[in-house]
């Protein structure tokens, strides 16, 4: 009797893990297919007389990019200052606080700017994308596109993906600048280093490689956000409540994907 009581939840637990794993693999497969299909439409849409529309891409770019500028600036600036405070505090132990610029420059450009930008875009645009697709699916708008002979991947997904792949690196570059500037201002106030001297040092330290590392990573984040959001949005079931659920899932999963990818990327590149 007692045996069964402990056996049952354990079995159920294992079963849940198994189901979760199967579902995870299925979703990975769906993500792969989606990337493939999107690239297919971008490349050969014109030949199929179903081109990916430039104006649709621009609408998405405005939404993803321009709308995010204030919050990206705020976050990047805050993180820049935070890095400066932390760096100076730590380096003081060795009496090497003037070297703080090295730490700031590398951390902002290679890690923090892409990461924070990716997280903000996941929260703003990834959730919006998942919610939009989920709502459209529930309202049969996706079915309507199908019967009108308009491929939804071409019409909805491709513009969003292209827009993100352009705007996330652009926003990352912007947050590089804001982060470095904010940190520079703090360093100037705290250590009395002039902004000009600070930026001279930053440029001296950073190579194009470092910049590309950050930007390349952010383009990868863009793909992750778009694909995870679309797959979640399209998997909606139930009514408005279902849309809420998949939206949350989309944001949580894309932020997790971003952080894990970031770690893997850093590990591979620094070897």
């Amino acid at each position: 009797m007692a045996e069964q009581a402990t056996e049952n939840p354990a079995a159920r637990f294992v079963e849940r893990i198994g189901r979760g794993a199967v579902r995870g693999i299925e979703e990975l497969g769906a993500c792969g297919m989606l990337v493939f299909e999107t690239v297919y439409w971008i490349v050969s849409g014109r030949r199929m007389r179903q081109p990916v529309r430039i104006d649709a891409i621009f609408v998405q770019m405005m939404e993803t990019g321009i709308g995010a500028i204030p919050i990206v600036a705020l976050m990047a600036g805050t993180i820049g200052v935070m890095l400066a405070i932390q760096g100076i505090h730590t380096l003081k132990i060795f009496g090497a606080e003037t070297q703080v610029t090295v730490g700031i420059a590398f951390s902002v450009v290679r890690e923090f700017a892409p990461l924070i930008t990716g997280i903000i875009v996941a929260g703003r645009s990834g959730s919006a994308l998942a919610a939009r697709l989920g709502t459209m699916k529930i309202n049969q708008e996706i079915d309507a596109l199908h019967v009108m002979g308009i491929n939804p991947v071409r019409f909805l997904v491709a513009p969003a993906l292209v827009a993100m792949m352009v705007m996330v690196p652009a926003l990352t570059l912007f947050s590089d600048l804001v982060g470095l500037l904010a940190a520079g201002l703090y360093v100037g106030v705290d250590l009395g280093i002039s902004l000009a001297a600070y930026f001279d040092r930053v440029i001296e330290i950073l190579s194009v490689d470092d910049l590309m590392h950050g930007l390349g990573k952010s383009a990868l984040f863009a793909v992750l956000i778009a694909v995870v959001s679309v797959v979640n949005g399209a998997s909606v079931s139930g009514g408005a409540e279902g849309v809420g659920k998949v939206t949350t899932r989309a944001v949580v999963q894309s932020i997790s994907a971003i952080v894990v990818t970031d770690m893997i990327f850093a590990f591979l590149v620094t070897r």
Binding site: M48, R132, T135, M136, N139, Q140, D143, A144, V147, G149
Partner: peptide, 24 residues
């Protein structure tokens, strides 16, 4: 084929139960 299906779809019209108008 995908292409023939698209051509065929231009010859049918559908009014869905809830309308399914694009809300945007």
């Amino acid at each position: 084929s995908v292409r023939d299906m698209n051509d065929l779809r231009k010859k049918i019209g559908v009014a869905f139960q809830g309308g399914a108008l694009f809300s945007s």
